[in-house]
């Protein structure tokens, strides 16, 4: 299947501004940063969580701990996928018990990834609360999940694909909508 880019919906500045706003909203909602930890969902949630931590360090002068969550073992579609997904590692350099966990991911779509991430977090301990931050919400939820912080709401059709490209992996900061090439 070949996909072609249809439109750029966020550029490097767009992504930066969205993250700065989310960072401020995290401080506002939690009335500070006490007990707040950021947990990026592999893969692209991880660099986003790190960037949020950098912004919070600059604006609030607080070091917010960042963890990485691999949800492969918690997927509900393991037996449906043709390729066996590679199991990455989960690295949380803190105990989640009693923490305000902010899950970070690039795109919120069906909600199944977040469902898996919630299970994965809860298996590691009992956080005080779990919040969700995403760069893009593209709709089409299949389970009742919503985000607390959204960079940009993008109405899409199911045929379309949202590609989040981040410098850490893709050498460019960009969010594009693409669609399967015709013919």
């Amino acid at each position: 299947m070949q996909f072609i880019d249809k439109a750029e919906i966020m550029d490097v500045d767009g992504i930066r501004r969205a993250l700065v706003r989310i960072a401020h909203e995290i401080v506002e909602k939690n009335k500070g940063l006490e007990d707040v930890v950021l947990v990026g969902i592999r893969r692209r949630g991880v660099p986003l969580a790190r960037r949020l931590a950098e912004i919070l360090k600059k604006s609030e002068d607080v070091d917010v701990p960042v963890g990485e969550l691999d949800i492969t073992l918690y997927r509900d579609d393991l037996t449906l996928r043709f390729e066996q997904p590679h199991v990455g590692s989960t690295v949380l350099p803190f105990d989640v018990a009693g923490k305000k966990v902010v899950l970070v991911d690039d795109v919120l779509y069906t909600g199944r990834t977040v469902r898996a991430a919630l299970d994965a977090i809860i298996d590691l301990g009992r956080p005080a609360c779990i919040q969700l931050a995403v760069l893009v919400d593209r709709g089409h939820r299949e389970i009742p999940i919503r985000a607390d912080y959204v960079g940009k709401n993008v109405p899409t059709s199911r045929k379309e694909v949202i590609n989040v490209r981040l410098k850490e992996y893709d050498s460019i900061d960009q969010v594009v909508i693409s669609e399967e090439a015709q013919g």
Binding site: L73, Y74, L78, D123, G125
Partner: peptide, 8 residues
């Protein structure tokens, strides 16, 4: 882990 179980 304290809870040694994944649902895979």
């Amino acid at each position: 882990r304290p809870i040694k179980k994944v649902p895979t």
